[in-house]
Design a binder for these strands. Structure first.
Length: 533
RNA sequence: GGCCCCGUCGUCUAGUGGUUAGGACACAUGCCUUUCACGCAUGCAGCACGGGUUCGACUCCCGUCGGGGUCACCA
């Protein structure tokens, strides 16, 4: 237990730790009841519609969603667009599509509405106005007539003297205020922070955090142009939307204390807070930065949700991975179904330290989930990628569909993401061979290989019937008869018919491709070898 | 710089004073095998550092170092 602040002036405000299933008793010093005492759990995710969702944001949203679902509560989506109201539609749609893809459904918010709407901050002006009236009545909010240049003087001085900058109320004489008003001088609305109080937050992830109000400057809640600011708007909304658990990124931990003051001034019940640590770069403790997106891309590290969607990842796999990034159940279980996650997720198992993004582990989980996927679903997932490359027609014919199914089956566990079908199985769909230079060098540029390929061409022409079993038997017999090792026959034949050194079993390839296609490819390979020898 | 948060293998984590510090990914090796993938087996690897407290510290306290946040009329 950290030492309790004692013997100093000021009261103590405590936000009690609340376990939804067993509300804690009220703690001295704070006279407001806690939200979740008698209500069901209500969580929210409040993105601002700028750019794309990155995986850190998705994870925060997921924790909110899981918490709500775990307790049979409600998950609310709110669009925090106080700042920019233009061209929001597209960004919001992208966010919503991302949520839909992840299968994180929201009970209130855009498109579905709800009893506490609207769910766009840009449409809630009257709510903020009413809250401002309330705060003004409480005497906690005042008009600030300061100019930017005046504040800059203070700020620069603070910086120079290496002390924190904190705005404190400038008290003007009544006639001065009258003059300001007469000349129409613009003013912001500020919250007057009471000095000398110690605020204690019982964060559900971080534990007990103590903060002195002396560290908080009087903050602006409404700009001169009437625009409400985040710190204020989000408190008003969380209160009105009856949010019981504010689960958000830890960068908001310090913001929580001024917010506590506003909840108090508003006379609103306090939600519980849980601050989720940031996501670090792969292999590092450093925070992932949006600015480095291009660098990450060069290293093959994907940071945005849409990038994983485009790669053909499985929502259940990403969900599983993100849940385990910073959360664990028992230290042993790695794979969780959606239902298990809902059943087992609790905030107290969320790690209080940052977790770094591990694309390798994601890829492994993805593979595990892909193994479980029924072949029908694999076909459905793979077809768009084939179609985008022009490798299959659209819509798919019956025969084509059967062929895709056979290819998917042949690919087996090699298929990790849906887009892998193009990388691993392209040769199944086009007569044009793309030769892997290393494979050609290693397997084909060997003495005797062209002659052998000639033999195999003839062999394929003679095999009857042309099926898996007979093919395998014929190749074995050929190897035996000519005194070659199986690998010395099979590997060149694979490269000659697929262009690649790796892939499904050889006989699967030969059979699926068909007799004539295989023979044509062998001849194509022979020609290639001669030309570039 | 003030204040606040954080620090177990490369990575995700288990661990709440007494453990040979456990599991997973990655990596390495072997087996399986026509390649790759899968599977199986084995191995490598960790309590940031320094002081305390204690019979005994990864676990508690203090400091240092490192990472992060905040100190906006951004969110």
């Amino acid at each position: 237990m950290p030492p309790r602040p004692s013997g100093r002036a000021g009261s103590t405000v405590r936000a009690p730790p609340i376990r939804p299933w067993r509300p804690a008793a009220a703690v001295s010093g704070f006279h407001h009841s806690h939200r979740s005492r008698s209500m069901s759990v209500r969580t929210r995710f409040a993105p601002s519609p700028t750019g794309f969702l990155h995986i850190g944001g998705v994870r925060t949203a997921l924790f909110n969603w899981l918490l709500a679902r775990h307790h049979g509560g409600r998950f609310i989506l709110r669009i925090d667009d106080t700042d920019q109201e233009r061209h929001v539609d597209d960004a919001v749609k992208r966010i919503l599509d991302g949520f839909r893809w992840m299968g994180m459904d929201w009970d209130e918010g855009p498109e579905v509405g709800g009893p506490h709407g609207p769910y766009y901050q840009s449409q809630r002006a009257e709510h903020y106005r009413a809250a401002v009236d309330k705060l003004i009545a409480s005497g906690r909010v005042y008009r600030d007539y300061s100019t930017e240049s005046e504040r800059n003087v203070e700020r620069d001085a603070s910086k120079r003297e290496k002390r924190p900058y904190r705005f404190r109320r400038i008290v003007h004489a009544p006639d001065e205020i009258a003059r300001f008003e007469a000349e129409g001088r613009p003013h912001a609305l500020r919250f007057e922070v009471p000095l000398g109080r110690t605020l204690v937050l019982n964060d559900l992830i971080k534990g007990e955090v103590t903060f002195s109000t002396d560290e908080i400057g009087d903050f602006v809640i409404v700009r001169p142009n009437g625009q409400p600011l985040y710190n204020f708007a989000s408190v008003v909304d969380d209160a009105e939307m009856e949010i019981t658990h504010v689960v958000r990124a830890e960068e908001h931990l310090s913001n929580t204390f001024p917010q506590l003051l506003m909840f108090e001034a508003l006379g609103a019940p306090l939600p519980a807070f849980a601050h989720v640590p940031y996501v670090a770069e792969p292999g590092s403790r450093e925070k992932m930065s949006k600015r480095k997106t291009d660098d990450y891309a060069k290293r093959g590290v994907l940071v945005y949700l849409h990038q994983y969607i485009e790669k053909g990842y499985l929502p259940d796999a990403l969900l599983n991975y993100l849940a385990r990034l910073g959360w664990s159940f028992d230290g042993a279980q790695e794979l969780f179904t959606r239902a298990e996650l809902i059943e087992k997720f609790t905030l107290d198992r969320v790690n209080s330290s940052p977790a770094s993004h591990d694309p390798d582990k994601l890829f492994w989980i993805e593979g595990e989930w892909m193994k479980e996927l029924p072949v029908e679903a694999k076909i459905a997932g793979v077809v768009p990628f084939l179609a985008a490359e022009g490798l299959v027609g659209q819509p798919l014919g019956d025969a084509e569909r059967a062929y895709v199914e056979a290819v998917v089956l042949a690919l087996g566990d090699r298929l990790k993401t849906f887009s892998d079908v193009v990388k691993l199985g392209r040769f199944f769909f086009t007569p044009e061979l793309t030769f892997d230079p290393d494979a050609v060098k290693k397997r084909l540029r060997k003495p005797g290989v062209p002659e052998m390929l000639g033999d195999l061409d003839a062999l394929l022409g003679a095999v009857e019937p042309y099926d898996l079993e007979t093919l395998e038997k014929a190749v074995h017999e050929y190897a035996e008869k000519t005194g070659r090792k199986m690998g010395d026959v099979v590997n060149p034949l694979r490269v000659a018919t697929t262009g690649q050194a790796v892939g499904p079993g050889l006989y699967d390839c030969l059979y699926l491709l068909g007799r004539e296609a295989c023979r044509a490819r062998i001849r194509q390979t022979l020609a290639m070898l001669e030309q570039t020898d």
